[in-house]
Computed example of a mutant assay.
Amino acid sequence: MADLLFVAIFLAGFGVLFWYVVAAPRSQVLGKTLVCGPPDSGKIALTFDDGPGEATPLILDILKKAGIRATFFLCGQNVERFPIYARRIAEEGHEIGNHTYSHPRFLWKTPGRIAWEIERAQNVIAHHTGRQPKLFRPPYGIRWFGLFPILNRNQMRVIMWSVNSKDWRSPAPRIVSRVLRGVTPGAIILLHDGVPPHQSGDRNGTVEAVGEIVGTLGERYRFVPVSEMR
């Protein structure tokens, strides 16, 4: 019985350690990752994943009215589906990052597959927006073995987040509450303007929440793209 208990504790501990290494936003084990900006800067960043999508133009309208630039991590397949929205993101001065081509989990993926996902997305994004992203956010936040050499080769850096809105599963009031509670100077806020390719859903709650988030936090902080979080 004692041996079984020891094995169970060992496996549980290993699982926690493994999760931290590959998935914890603040983990730096596999490579350098930006989680937040300087705490004395007075700046915060809005970031949007999985787009472009049907909610993207509505979010862009809100940001344009508020005079705010954000960072959009685009999926290559969604850029092909909504090229007009991708171009609008670029034309309105927002920062564009790479979120892979098809939004796979990197767990157990080979370096060759990871490289294909990143480089295919780079080509698609560049074709439709004229931009070559220098920022990368891994799908589901999972950084896998072999990822960082590929990013270094492409002169890209990993961007995670310090505030997770969990907007993909929450109504607008909870999204707003979670963001407002979590924000501190230098915060990088995770939101979603699209849905991963081959998945369904909407981002109506995000659209509703963004207006209130911008209005409330704009009184205390300056919104900037991630690359200006210095």
Rank of each mutant, 00 (worst) to 15 (best):
E119T: 13
L107V: 13
P197F: 02
K166H: 12
F106P: 06
Q132N: 03
V158G: 04
E117L: 04
R113N: 15
Q199F: 10
R181S: 14
G112S: 15
A209K: 07
H198D: 11
I142W: 01
G130A: 00
Q132C: 03
V210Y: 01
I150P: 13
R113M: 15
V207N: 07
L107D: 08
G211M: 00
Y140E: 07
N152K: 06
D193Y: 05
R153A: 15
N164L: 03
N123V: 10
D202F: 05
I175M: 09
N164Q: 08
K166Y: 12
H127N: 11
T129L: 05
A187M: 01
V163K: 00
S102C: 09
G211C: 04
T216F: 11
I114L: 09
R120G: 15
L180W: 06
Q155G: 14
R120W: 10
V183D: 05
G215R: 06
W161T: 03
Q199P: 10
P104T: 03
A115W: 14
K134W: 11
N204K: 14
V210T: 02
I213E: 10
L191F: 00
D167N: 14
W108A: 15
V214N: 13
L217D: 07
K134M: 08
H198T: 09
G218I: 02
A121E: 04
M156N: 06
P133R: 00
V210R: 02
G201I: 08
P173H: 01
N164D: 13
G201L: 09
G211Y: 02
G215D: 10
E119V: 14
V163A: 00
P138V: 00
R174Q: 08
I114M: 15
L135P: 10
T216W: 07
S177F: 15
P197T: 01
H198V: 11
P185M: 02
P104S: 09
E212K: 11
F136I: 07
T129G: 01
T110S: 13
G205V: 04
E119Y: 11
D193T: 06
K134E: 11
I213F: 07
V207T: 00
P139Q: 03
G215E: 08
G205R: 09
Y140C: 13
R153G: 07
A115M: 14
R203D: 08
P139T: 01
H128G: 01
V210L: 09
T206H: 07
N154I: 05
L217G: 07
Q199R: 14
G186K: 04
G194R: 02
W161Q: 04
W168C: 08
H103Y: 03
L135W: 07
I213L: 13
P138S: 03
A115F: 08
V183H: 04
V158L: 07
L151Q: 05
E117Y: 09
T110H: 07
N204H: 14
W108H: 10
F148K: 13
N204S: 13
G146N: 08
R120K: 15
A121N: 01
W168D: 15
G215S: 05
S200C: 03
A209W: 13
I118N: 03
G130M: 04
P139S: 09
I189T: 02
I118R: 06
P185G: 05
G218W: 08
I189C: 05
H103D: 06
A121K: 04
W168Q: 15
I118P: 05
L151C: 05
G186M: 01
N123A: 14
V183G: 01
W116R: 14
